Computed example of a mutant assay.
Amino acid sequence: MQQLEFQLNGEFVELNQLLKLVGLCDSGGAGKALVASGEVAVDGQQELRKTAKIWAGQVVTLGDISIRVLAGG
């Protein structure tokens, strides 16, 4: 499994934007499509809300890729 880390700039990031910012898709719209497909999980639970707020400490998975979200500096 490939593990990535993402450091927040604010309190949270929307799920579709996170997927774009780490390079898993080309746009926020493509991120929304990935979420709608049911392939994305947050903390081990399938997430279908495209703009779900992702907070520090959460882990987002897509296939064999895991993204750990870290608090901003």
Rank of each mutant, 00 (worst) to 15 (best):
residue 25 C to S: 08
residue 11 E to V: 06
residue 21 L to H: 04
residue 30 A to Q: 15
residue 6 F to V: 01
residue 45 Q to L: 07
residue 29 G to D: 14
residue 30 A to I: 01
residue 11 E to S: 06
residue 26 D to G: 14
residue 26 D to S: 12
residue 23 G to R: 01
residue 26 D to A: 14
residue 39 E to Q: 13
residue 47 E to S: 11
residue 35 V to G: 13
residue 47 E to T: 02
residue 31 G to H: 08
residue 20 K to A: 13
residue 26 D to L: 05
residue 27 S to M: 09
residue 8 L to M: 01
residue 18 L to P: 06
residue 47 E to W: 00
residue 47 E to C: 15
residue 14 E to S: 06
residue 30 A to R: 12
residue 25 C to A: 04
residue 28 G to Y: 09
residue 14 E to Q: 11
residue 29 G to T: 06
residue 24 L to T: 09
residue 48 L to T: 10
residue 41 A to P: 01
residue 39 E to K: 15
residue 14 E to M: 05
residue 10 G to S: 13
residue 34 L to D: 07
residue 22 V to Y: 00
residue 36 A to E: 15
residue 2 Q to G: 03
residue 27 S to L: 07
residue 22 V to W: 10
residue 43 D to V: 05
residue 19 L to E: 08
residue 46 Q to L: 13
residue 14 E to G: 03
residue 25 C to R: 06
residue 43 D to I: 06
residue 11 E to A: 10
residue 19 L to W: 03
residue 31 G to I: 12
residue 3 Q to E: 15
residue 21 L to Q: 09
residue 30 A to M: 13
residue 24 L to W: 11
residue 43 D to L: 07
residue 11 E to G: 06
residue 47 E to K: 06
residue 28 G to P: 04
residue 31 G to T: 02
residue 40 V to S: 11
residue 6 F to N: 02
residue 39 E to F: 07
residue 21 L to N: 09
residue 7 Q to K: 08
residue 2 Q to D: 07
residue 27 S to I: 05
residue 38 G to V: 03
residue 22 V to L: 12
residue 27 S to N: 08
residue 41 A to I: 00
residue 35 V to H: 10
residue 26 D to V: 02
residue 32 K to P: 02
residue 21 L to E: 10
residue 20 K to G: 12
residue 35 V to C: 12
residue 6 F to L: 00
residue 12 F to A: 08
residue 37 S to F: 03
residue 39 E to D: 13
residue 40 V to E: 12
residue 43 D to A: 09
residue 29 G to A: 15
residue 18 L to F: 06
residue 34 L to F: 05
residue 30 A to F: 06
residue 40 V to K: 06
residue 36 A to G: 09
residue 6 F to H: 10
residue 36 A to Y: 02
residue 12 F to W: 07
residue 29 G to I: 03
residue 8 L to T: 00
residue 15 L to M: 14
residue 19 L to Q: 01
residue 28 G to M: 13
residue 31 G to L: 09
residue 12 F to I: 01
residue 44 G to H: 07
residue 48 L to H: 00
residue 34 L to V: 05
residue 10 G to D: 14
residue 6 F to D: 04
residue 45 Q to D: 03
residue 16 N to G: 03
residue 23 G to P: 03
residue 38 G to E: 12
residue 4 L to E: 00
residue 43 D to W: 00
residue 45 Q to A: 08
residue 26 D to M: 03
residue 40 V to M: 11
residue 22 V to Q: 08
residue 10 G to C: 03
residue 37 S to Q: 11
residue 22 V to I: 04
residue 7 Q to S: 08
residue 26 D to F: 03
residue 30 A to W: 01
residue 5 E to M: 07
residue 23 G to H: 07
residue 1 M to G: 10
residue 48 L to Y: 04
residue 11 E to T: 10
residue 14 E to W: 00
residue 40 V to L: 10
residue 39 E to A: 15
residue 6 F to A: 03
residue 16 N to S: 11
residue 28 G to I: 02
residue 4 L to S: 02
residue 32 K to A: 15
residue 42 V to P: 09
residue 42 V to W: 12
residue 38 G to W: 14
residue 32 K to F: 01
residue 35 V to L: 12
residue 44 G to N: 10
residue 7 Q to E: 13
residue 10 G to K: 10
residue 37 S to E: 09
residue 39 E to V: 12
residue 11 E to I: 02
residue 2 Q to F: 04
residue 27 S to V: 07
residue 7 Q to P: 04
